[in-house]
């Protein structure tokens, strides 16, 4: 089966950036995800929502890239929310202990609502 070329889209919703990774997060092309978040962080955005609805699978390289985004946000006391995660993704993040360092929502709108309100 031909792998889907990894790509990233994004939009600004209020003071939060919503990032849409698409494809298998398993190689250097995933660096575009870190770069996309970096652009928003560079503009002063401290709230990032990563909508994983089009990314079902991840490997150690992808984890490293997610880790990089978490560290970049932590350095500016920012917040990362992850939404629409597949069971595989959720289980992997949970097993590694990443879940404790992010806020997980079932949907993007839930995350936006939370970020607007400032409380879960």
């Amino acid at each position: 089966m031909k792998p889907v070329q990894f790509s990233v889209a994004s939009k600004l919703v209020g003071d939060a950036a919503v990032i849409y990774p698409k494809g298998y997060l398993n190689n250097l092309s995933g660096e575009s995800l870190v770069n996309e978040c970096g652009i928003y962080i560079g503009r002063g955005i401290t709230k990032i929502v990563v909508n994983f609805s089009e990314t079902d699978l991840i490997n150690s390289i992808g984890i490293s890239l997610i880790l990089q985004i978490m560290e970049d946000l932590r350095n500016i006391k920012g917040t990362i929310c992850c939404t629409n995660m597949s069971k595989f993704l959720h289980d992997t993040f949970e097993m590694l202990g990443l879940i404790q360092h992010m806020i997980v929502f079932p949907s993007e709108s839930d995350a936006i609502k939370y970020l607007k309100a400032g409380t879960p």
Partner: peptide
């Protein structure tokens, strides 16, 4: 670089 990501992603 990819190998390095594998390592940092494995051990966080």
């Amino acid at each position: 670089q990819a190998v390095f990501y594998v390592i940092t992603g494995t051990f966080l």
